[in-house]
């Protein structure tokens, strides 16, 4: 069976500096794949490559087996790949409801509507009429995830979900994420918080300086191995 989304020996960077080097992985329908690594390991760049917002210098991106490497970001969204960008990037002069509606810009058929998104992310319920610029960080993140769901994607790319949020808010967001999963939605999750990543992910890919240095299910990988990969200790000897 072909993977939902696959990266094939992708390299990408900015100018002379290479952020992602010869990286390959696959995401199956319904799977949560976590990219783990320190700051600057190339995770965000990789997500942007998958979303079509950044062009890889080498390699291919396949969606359901079809080469989408040269499909631009807004067209790729229409094909079912949606990036929830780092820093939430809500539209500040729009209300929460309007933010969600813009997310449905290239709407595909599916279960997500404003109502079902509010069901899945209950903290949005009272906020629909509020201006996006008036929200707390956690609320913004919930809107950003909801906005991403509105296009009914097949793959959701989540960048730094918990960055800068209080633990209690993160708990709530991850609880929502559990209800969001399913229905064949593939998720690629970039997260610095190792604990949570291991708890939620079906598979992990550890990145170090643009390379994938370790991959496997949370069950297969020892904590020590992940930590070593994260910090770049003697991975080869493992």
């Amino acid at each position: 069976m072909t993977a939902l989304l696959a990266a094939e020996s992708v390299s990408a960077g900015y100018g002379d500096s290479r952020a992602v080097a010869d990286l390959s992985f696959e995401v199956a329908p319904g799977e949560v794949l976590a990219l783990v690594g320190a700051n600057g390991a190339g995770k965000s760049t990789l997500l942007r490559v998958l979303a079509g917002a950044h062009r890889p210098s080498v390699g291919r991106v396949l969606l359901r087996g079809e080469d989408v490497t040269h499909v631009r970001d807004f067209e790729r969204n229409r094909l079912g790949v949606c990036l929830v960008p780092e820093g939430r990037r809500l539209f500040p002069s729009l209300t929460v409801r309007e933010n969600l509606e813009v997310g449905a810009g290239s709407r595909r058929d599916g279960r997500w509507t404003v109502d079902t998104v509010v069901d899945a992310l209950p903290m949005l319920g009272d906020l629909l009429g509020r201006n996006a610029s008036q929200l707390s960080g956690g609320q913004q993140q919930a809107v950003a995830i909801g906005r991403g769901l509105m296009s009914n994607p097949e793959v959701l790319l989540l960048d730094e979900v918990s960055l800068g949020l209080a633990p209690i808010v993160i708990d709530e967001l991850y609880a929502s994420l559990a209800t969001v999963r399913g229905g064949g939605l593939g998720i690629v999750l970039v997260e610095q918080d190792l604990e949570r990543t291991v708890a939620v992910a079906d598979r992990l890919v550890c990145m170090l300086e643009g390379h994938a240095v370790l991959a496997g299910t949370p069950g297969e990988l020892s904590r020590q191995a992940i930590t070593d990969a994260y910090f770049g200790h003697e991975v080869a000897s493992w």
């Binding site: 979303a51 970001d73 969204n77 002069s93 509606e101 813009v102």
Partner: peptide, 22 residues
């Protein structure tokens, strides 16, 4: 809807692209 897109584009055109709107 077009008006919403215009306001969204004024805010952050790059993110609008990620939402499937050129």
């Amino acid at each position: 809807r077009a008006g919403r897109y215009m306001r969204a584009a004024a805010d952050d055109s790059e993110t609008l692209r990620l939402m499937g709107v050129d």
